[in-house]
Design a protein around this nucleic acid. Structure first.
Length: 469
RNA sequence: GCAGUUGUAGCUCAGUUGGUUAGAGCGCUUGAUUGUGGAUCAAGAGGUCGGUGGUUCAAAUCCACCCAACUGUACCA
């Protein structure tokens, strides 16, 4: 590399550095979620970051869009990919270890996942998912139980019931409806479901257009619709308006099966006195592997973007029943249901949540270094602090005291300890309080500083009692 | 992928009908106190004006192409 051509310190698009403040909150939230899942009887599992490409999805790297969706590399003769979610690896794991696992197998997993696609606002190519799943039982009471666990977990993170709501629906209702309307073509089913899924973004009028011929977006770009007939569209739109599944007349067998499942779920909620849910026929979930109840957790407080504009934040997690996923590997009876929390999105929202403002970051107490000759003295102070479990360090650089204070300020240190000739001679330490940053001191010389209320001289034996963090 | 908008200092941006040495605020460094951070004042460092090519005596400014970012939209196991 030549002297004048410097490297650009940039990150690949869609990736992000994460700093101390964010990580502290993230770790705290992850551990709250973990502990609550353990409390609710779930085991932990960690699968590897890479999987064989064909194991985790249908996009094989040698098809027409080689890298689309996933990050893949060729390993000897096989293509392997970074996982794009935690559900596909779970299905693989269950298929591989089925005989050894208790049934149902209740597990949770937290970890990074990677998606090789265009990043958007709040959407990255590397992010954390937190999944909780129950594999091996088709009883939808397990689905209901998942919702209770999730709701309880959000409470433990600090959200109140009015801050979020669990919305539930059942794919079987949609399946029944589409069958009744004679919408049987796979592609048409897909575009119909996708159109409904967009209700929150494009509104009911937008959905109507997308079910019909298509819709133009703000920039003038045209999106092709599902091309349904007028009476089909009308029936779908009126279905989306139902508020109470008990009042819907079942259209066919699969439809009434869906209703029955919702009733079981509702009864289970009542048993546990759980009310923070709502039936919402517009909940769809994008993925097509869902086969039964589906659910989403939505925040109800306002969230702003970087430009301070309120945005439709959407869900912080969702999931549902997928009974066929393990069957891709073996002919096993492994019906499953799961819920996934988008941890990064949750944190993004929580950072703005009033009742959960980040606690003030507290840096280490910095023992200033006035002369290397006093290092032994500083070490005694450091030991006392650390023995008392107080985060602390000796500044080892050769900078001026002024610079050391600037450093401590940036680290958000609550105190600095200043010991020079005088203090060492008298077995004392000077403790300077940095916490109250509102007042600029007007002391101008050393004598003034000595008598300043913001700093105090004590003996090295009992200076600890002056430190209050 | 498609469409629209925008690319000037680390960040946020100004830059006149094309015209001398490209600016401001914030941040950063140093100093005003050789033992005192956050305020104030002063000085300083920091730019391939997104890239390449073209028009012109002259381009940050005009033209073409490319690249990137943002917004919307599509795809998303």
């Amino acid at each position: 590399m030549s002297e004048n051509k410097k490297l650009n310190p940039e990150l690949p698009s869609g990736f992000k550095d994460r700093i101390n403040e964010e990580l502290l909150l993230r770790d705290e939230i992850i551990s709250l979620i973990k502990n609550n899942f353990i409390l609710n009887g779930f085991d932990q599992l960690e699968t590897s970051s890479f999987e064989y490409s064909d194991v985790i999805g249908k996009f094989l790297p040698d098809q027409d869009r080689p890298q689309s969706g996933v990050f893949s590399i060729k390993d000897e003769n096989d293509w392997i990919s970074l996982r794009y979610d935690l559900t596909a690896p779970l299905a693989r794991y269950v298929a591989k270890n089925y005989d050894l696992l208790p049934r149902p197998f209740k597990r949770f997993q937290v970890g990074q996942v990677w998606r090789n696609e265009k990043p958007g606002p709040g959407r990255f190519r590397e992010f954390i998912q937190f999944d909780i799943d129950i594999v091996g039982d088709s009883n939808v009471q397990y689905d209901a139980d998942l919702c209770l666990v999730i709701s309880d977990t959000l409470n433990k993170i600090g959200l109140k019931n009015q801050d979020f709501k669990i919305r539930i629906n059942n794919r079987k209702l949609l399946q029944g409806l589409l069958e009744d309307l004679k919408i049987l073509d796979y592609k048409q089913i897909q575009s119909t479901l996708r159109a409904i899924d967009k209700l929150d973004r494009v509104g009911i009028k937008g959905v109507e257009l997308l079910l019909g011929n298509g819709r133009k977006d703000k920039s003038g770009d045209f999106t092709k619709g599902a091309e349904l007939k007028k009476n089909q569209i009308d029936k779908i739109i009126s279905f989306l308006d139902f508020k109470d599944f008990n009042k819907i007349t079942p259209l066919n067998e699969i439809f009434s099966e869906g209703i029955k499942e919702l009733i079981i779920i509702k009864n289970y909620f009542e048993l546990f006195n759980f009310k923070n849910f709502v039936f919402d026929p517009t909940v769809i979930r994008g993925l097509d592997y869902y086969t039964g109840p589906i659910f989403e957790a939505n925040l109800s407080f306002k969230v702003k973007n970087e430009k301070d504009v309120e945005i439709e934040f959407g869900s912080i997690g969702g999931g549902g029943r997928y009974d066929k996923l393990v069957n891709r590997f073996k002919n096993l009876n492994a019906p499953a249901t799961g819920f996934s929390i988008g941890v990064d999105r949750l944190i993004y929202a929580l950072l703005q949540y009033d009742d959960l403002k980040i606690k003030n970051i507290i840096g280490p107490i910095v023992i200033c270094n006035l002369d290397e000759a006093y290092l032994g003295y500083y070490r005694q102070i450091l030991s006392k602090l650390r023995d008392a479990n107080i985060c602390s360090e000796i500044y080892l650089g050769k900078n001026s005291l002024k610079n050391q204070l600037k450093y401590a300020d940036k680290r958000k240190s609550p105190y600095v300890i200043i010991c020079g000739e005088d203090e060492v001679k008298n077995n004392e330490v000077t403790i300077k309080n940095l916490k109250d940053t509102d007042k600029v001191s007007d002391a101008i010389n050393r004598e003034d500083w000595k008598s300043s209320s913001k700093q105090k001289k004590c003996s090295i034996e009992n200076f600890l009692k002056e430190i209050k963090i």
